[in-house]
Amino acid sequence: MKIENIILLTCKILLVSIFFVPVTVNAVEVTEQLHGSSYVKNSSQLREEADRQVSLARRELKQGKTDSAVNLLLQALEIYHFTGDIKAQGLVYDLLGKSYVKLGRSKQAENAIRRRLAIARDLKDFRSQIFALNNIGTLLMQKGDFNPALQTFIEALNIAREIESLEGQGLSLSNVGLANFRLGNHNQAMELYENALNFRRQARDSLGEANTLNHLGDAYLLVDNYQQTIATYGAALRIAKTISDRSNELRAMDGLITAHSSVKRYDRAFELLERRLSIAKKLNNIREELKSFESYAKLYEQMGQYSTARNFYERAILLAKTLEDSREELLLLDKITRISKR
Rank of each mutant, 00 (worst) to 15 (best):
L272M: 07
S99E: 03
V263S: 01
I13L: 12
A231R: 07
L14R: 10
R327P: 00
I336D: 14
Y266S: 01
E49G: 09
S206T: 03
K12A: 12
F270K: 08
V40D: 11
L166I: 01
A189P: 03
F270P: 07
I18Y: 03
E164A: 13
E271T: 07
A112W: 07
I230G: 12
P22Y: 07
L8N: 12
N225S: 10
D67F: 08
L15E: 13
Y226L: 09
T152I: 02
L34Q: 07
Q142F: 08
S278K: 11
I163T: 03
F153V: 02
L221I: 03
E49Q: 15
H186P: 00
N195V: 00
S128Q: 09
Y80A: 09
K98E: 15
R251D: 11
D94L: 10
K264T: 12
A236Q: 06
G208Y: 03
K321V: 02
M141R: 13
R115Q: 11
L221Q: 09
V92N: 06
R251F: 07
V16K: 12
G144A: 07
E48C: 00
L123W: 03
S261W: 00
I6R: 08
Q129A: 06
Q63I: 00
E301V: 01
V25L: 15
R310K: 15
S43F: 14
G184C: 07
K98T: 15
E314G: 00
Y220C: 09
L140A: 06
K62S: 10
S37V: 13
R276G: 01
L207E: 04
S262N: 09
A69V: 10
Y266P: 01
S38L: 06
I130Q: 02
M141T: 05
L56M: 11
D245C: 03
T10F: 13
Y266W: 10
L157P: 00
